[in-house]
């Protein structure tokens, strides 16, 4: 039976070093490039015809566009419009990355916590900067619940600050944990199929079901990641 953790190994394809720092082009980096390439090719080719009555591919592209536009409108409102390109890119990157990772033999970069954590941190830092830019120091009032007795501030403010700072961690961990767990389950079930010979048909049937579930999770997690970014953006723009 193959090692279920082995699939997450990052290994260099083109070893590079710059000033003592290892900047090798790895399989993880290759999948990211592939994700960007697939997204670009898909979006460019599908809307190239600019048909008034969209074909299949154009419909798909428009569907995704409207989905994200609607998500941004519902969660952030009209002020969220300038951030649409970022949110859309974020969604496409996570979605296509998750889906490409489900192809046999490929690598899922979202199953590495450093990748998801950096993405979550970019969102977090960006949202905090937007909050301070729009509200100035008034933004800090967010850390004290309205109407609580002033004496409780000593405890409440640190708790709220920690709770705010734990956002990128919980956002990153959620995507990472879902992808990692899913891929480990798939590999272990695959190992059962190989081990059981003829009776492997039973785990194979189960594996098929889990695979469908994994496709669902790949899309759901991309949605969750994006929708939470939208909510954070909402909090920074419309501070209560």
């Amino acid at each position: 039976m193959s090692n279920p953790i082995e699939q997450f190994q990052v290994h260099p394809i083109v070893p590079l070093e710059l000033g003592g720092v290892n900047i090798s082009f790895t399989n993880s980096a290759l999948m990211m490039v592939a994700t960007v390439a697939v997204t670009t090719v898909f979006l460019t080719l599908s809307v190239r015809k600019r048909a008034l009555v969209p074909g299949r591919w154009q419909s798909l592209a428009e569907l995704i566009y409207e989905f994200i536009a609607g998500m941004l409108r519902e969660n952030v409102g009209q002020e969220g419009r300038p951030y649409f390109p970022f949110i859309f890119s974020l969604f496409m990157f996570v979605l296509i990355g998750n889906l490409l990772g489900l192809l046999p033999g490929s690598f899922t970069f979202t199953s590495h916590i450093i990748v998801t954590f950096v993405m979550a941190s970019v969102v977090f830092v960006g949202v905090t900067v937007i909050g301070f830019a729009r509200h100035g120091l008034h933004f800090l009032r967010m850390f004290f619940p309205n109407g609580a007795p002033l004496a409780t501030a000593v405890i409440l403010v640190p708790i709220e600050v920690i709770s705010y700072l734990s956002r990128p961690l919980s956002l990153g961990v959620r995507l990472f944990a879902n992808m990692t767990a899913g891929h480990i389950i798939l590999t272990i079930l695959g190992g059962f199929v190989a081990m059981l010979g003829v009776f492997g048909i039973f785990p194979l049937a189960f594996l098929t079901g889990v695979m469908v579930l994994e496709f669902g999770i790949a899309m759901l997690q991309a949605y969750v990641f994006t929708v939470l970014s939208c909510i954070y953006l909402h909090d920074a723009i419309h501070m209560h």
């Binding site: 850390f143 619940p145 609580a148 909510i231 954070y232 909090d235 209560h240």
Partner: peptide
């Protein structure tokens, strides 16, 4: 009441 920081905001 999801991720909102600040209990008041969350309650609202």
């Amino acid at each position: 009441v999801d991720e909102t920081v600040g209990l008041q905001a969350a309650r609202e």
